[in-house]
Amino acid sequence: MAAPLLTGYILIMLFLAPRLLRAAGWTRRAPRLGIGVWIAACLSAVAAVCLVGALLVVPLLTVGHAIISLAMACGISLHHVSRTALSLAMDAAGVGVLAVIAVRILYATATVAWPQRRLRRRHAAALRILGRRHPTRDDILVVEHPVPAVYCLPTRRRMVVVSEGALALLDPPMLDAVIAHEHAHLRGHHYLITTITAVLARAFPRLPLFTAADDEVRRLVEMAADDSAARRTTPRTVARALLDLVAGQVPAPALGMAGVGAAERVRRLLAPSRPLSLAARYLAAAGAAALLLLPVAVPTVPALVDDATHCPPAAIAADVAAHAPRADLAAWHEHATEH
């Protein structure tokens, strides 16, 4: 019963959800919520596949009881099940599913997240020697290079790097906007977020959910940072900084680097749409929470129902008292058994 439902859910999440979320206009009006929903969808899909793997090995109720025990910080007692050829085959399949997911995520972390981190740290170490302080702003590192470049580094000593080429193009308000944008990246842990989606996209290539999430989250973190910069300065200042830096770029078509939706960002800043209504925000946040809770709820809700129907309250109290023999609970237990 649970397995076909979960399989359907996984298929919807992997193939239909990315289409719907991509088409949804609201993510651009509330980029931070959008990021939350995309991440929740990815984690939910991975958790649901893991759950299917676990269900092949142990029954639904056992998984549910295990989660409840974990939540209550009690020891997990997996029910013993009789071993048959079929159950062994299911065990192997379930362990296989879990192993494939673990191995792919580890592989992607080793090939994406670690090398990127190593390169960034090496670069930051070089910039500590090459970079110069700005005469008036102590929160940026200036590098002597004519090409306009502005970026941040999430290393232990967080850095916002601005090239001399970029400094030459920006007036003080625009520089404020650019720095506010980069600080929003650092404060919002955007490196961590984009690393998660990049790892998942690498771990499970060709699955629309993960490739779309990586792409969209990358756009949305820029929009979230733009919004933050626009609040500290003005939307027009951020747009002006974007356009001036873009106009000052040496075209580099050979490298095939498309800016992350620069045109869309400028349009969004110059013609802002209505902010999302409070109700819509709550709805989106609730949706993200539901996505995260669903894979956990599938096994735990039946287990809780099972507990409630098969175990009278006194028995549960006895169980709790046995695990945590506290005086008040014991007294309550005695009281309960008297009646």
Binding site: V112, H123, L130, Y151, C152, E182, M257
Partner: peptide, 24 residues
Amino acid sequence: QLNEVLSGTDNRGMALLHFVRSMD
């Protein structure tokens, strides 16, 4: 150092968060 920064794509290299990149 800057060549390495400017030639990296969004997903490879250092995967830096740039304010804006040169565009196609």
